[in-house]
Design a protein around this nucleic acid. Structure first.
Lengths: 193, 193
DNA sequence: TTGTGAAAAGCTAACGGTTAGGGTTATGTT
DNA sequence: AACATAACCCTAACCGTTAGCTTTTCACAA
């Protein structure tokens, strides 16, 4: 399935990683706004155009795990144990995400994000994309026959839980408090069927 | 309280309105991305710096009602009838907002927003600001003693309802469907007291 | 009226993210 | 060996935005 990658792909991946690592290091050292794309390119020893060949924007340099987050969310729905209700699976996944973001080694990065308006904005629209994907996954599950609006709403709520918990004093407790509310919201959508 | 405004303030307001009107007209005619700030300034017969003296960014040219929305939301909470529960007031306000956005004369503008990624992003972070303000208003109401997390969560959910309903096939029905879920979420936060 | 301070608007030049255009090198393939 | 192409480089520019400074316009008081 995964052939041993050739030299070309290995070099490409190495370039990408070098750019991302260099950028993150510089951002953490000097601050996001104080580091220009031209600085990143020079420090990574690549051309500016190469940076944008690998990353769609300056902000994207900070959010490499973007797609992992999204895949994880979708799998939490599609790969859960047979006949397991949606909510516990979703709650577990959000717990994992929050724990991941508040872990000690990830903390400096998230501090950077919270301090930088441009990164906050980027994070926000990433979350909306994730919510949309999650909504699609929920809507596709034959065991959960809900309206499209209900699916989209619960997906948003779950992503809100992730976002709000990250900012709370006690993130883990916040996830549980918010999911108490979400489960109540979810249950009223099932009774109408 | 409100003195008759002098010539100076009238001219300032006129300049502001001329810029916003010109910008919106050009955006609708040629598309947001096809119109530059320099085009707007030239068409409104002002300097580029004057545009930015009145509006914080190009996107802000499209969202003049921003502050009205925010004030309306907060008033829905603070100015509701004595002892009226929160939820009906909030639901009414969101209904009003959705109706306002889906009205025929506002439709072209919202189509423009939905078609333009930069404007969608701006809209998203505006909503988060509104949610934060709404959360503060809810938390400040002595009749509703809930945790800070619960207040923030309900505020987010209400703004989600606004956002999701705008995109739904039947916006008015979507508001009611989502508020059914939000009310259930709100009620479980009261029972712990 | 006239002078004066300040707000509003203007001009120029620049910065920083982003992209287009067109060229060079390295890699995989025939 | 020869070709096609992916990855990369360079230059120059576009566009939103801001800084620095000058000019105009208004409000108000001497």
């Amino acid at each position: 399935m995964t052939e041993p990658p050739g030299r070309r792909e290995r070099k490409k991946a190495a370039t990408r990683r070098k750019i991302a690592d260099t950028a993150l290091r510089l951002f953490l050292e000097r601050g996001y706004d104080a580091v220009g794309i031209r600085d990143v390119a020079a420090a990574a020893d690549v051309a500016v155009t190469t940076v944008f060949a690998h990353f769609a924007s300056k902000e994207a340099l900070v959010f490499e795990q973007d797609e992992d987050f999204e895949r994880g969310l979708i799998r939490a729905v599609t790969d859960r144990a047979p006949h397991e209700p949606l909510m516990p699976a979703l709650r577990r996944e959000i717990h994992a995400l929050v724990r991941h973001c508040t872990a000690d080694d990830a903390a400096p990065v998230w501090r950077l994000v919270e301090e930088t308006p441009a990164l906050r904005e980027y994070d926000e629209s990433m979350r909306l994309r994730h919510a949309a994907s999650l909504a699609t996954a929920i809507a596709a599950d034959p065991e959960l026959s809900r309206t499209a609006t209900a699916c989209r709403t619960i997906a948003r709520f779950a992503i809100d839980a992730y976002s709000l918990a990250r900012e709370a004093d006690d993130p883990e407790a916040a996830v549980d408090e918010i999911f108490g509310m979400i489960e109540a919201a979810w249950e009223v959508t099932g009774s109408a069927a």
